[in-house]
Design a protein around this nucleic acid. Structure first.
Lengths: 136, 136
DNA sequence: GTTGTCGCTAACCAAAAGTAAGTACGCACC
DNA sequence: GGTGCGTACTTACTTTTGGTTAGCGACAAC
């Protein structure tokens, strides 16, 4: 497997390697979480659960995303091993994105959360309406 | 209530009331999602699954959060009906935060995602290492 | 008095996201 | 043969947001 430097004085990093700890400030799991739960990351993962999509398909499906953020978020997810990119060297460019097995797993977790919010929106809006709303 | 027609462009708000649609740009569910999946929102929800906490308890538990972001994120979650705030008029101020039933539900969804990431961190880091930085 | 605790807030600043344009290439049209 | 379109981006620039730091008010301990 892979060797990782282990500080002798503590096992924090080693523990982080064995299993992430989101409450630890240094743990790389925080970065992964930020990618996955980023504004567009969630929506892209859910969209890609529906199967392979082209760049412009995703752009149309995920309403309101800019091309810049679409490209960037896809690159994050690709780097984390959640998304696979396949480019065809044709002349109107064609690139396909699909979830890896790992990506499908997070995708389902994220979808569960997204679904819950969609279903419970009325209850949430009701709770909101019932109090003073300090919004930002 | 009344049934909504299939074309998304005609009944966006009505559909959002019946059940949120995260792919719709205007849908308020997006805002909720952003609060819940915000950098600190996730960690606070998971932390509060462990029971009632005081402000400073949360500050200590969620490593790295600033007081401003702690207060702000708690206000978001409170406004969305996920967190309940109870202030005691004593003189070293004392404020307790706990999850509402609604908050406990999202909390569990979020926890499932967080757990998955913590458990699968090694696999993710391996996938990352495999494409970005080759090892020695 | 001076310091420390606690839950916040206002002022300020850096990072993220949005906007708009540019790039490369071929194709259809006029 | 120039104009414009469509694709998948990138780059430069602006705006929005997130985040850090400092401080407040009231009291308790030193």
């Amino acid at each position: 497997m892979h060797e990782v430097a282990e500080p002798p004085e503590s096992g924090i990093l080693a523990a982080a390697m064995a299993r992430g700890d989101l409450f630890a400030e240094q743990c790389p799991s925080r970065e992964i979480l930020n990618h996955v739960t980023s504004r567009w990351g969630v929506l892209l993962l859910v969209a890609l659960l529906g199967g392979t999509h082209r760049f412009s398909d995703l752009r149309r499906k995920v309403n309101g995303i800019s091309e810049k953020m679409l490209a960037q978020t896809l690159q994050w997810l690709e780097a984390d091993g959640f998304v696979e990119r396949q480019a065809y060297p044709v002349i109107p460019p064609k690139v396909e994105y699909r979830l890896t097995p790992l990506g499908e797993e997070v995708g389902r977790k994220v979808e569960a959360l997204a679904d819950w919010i969609e279903v419970n929106l009325p209850a949430i809006l009701a709770a909101r309406a019932g109090r003073t709303t300090p919004e930002e």
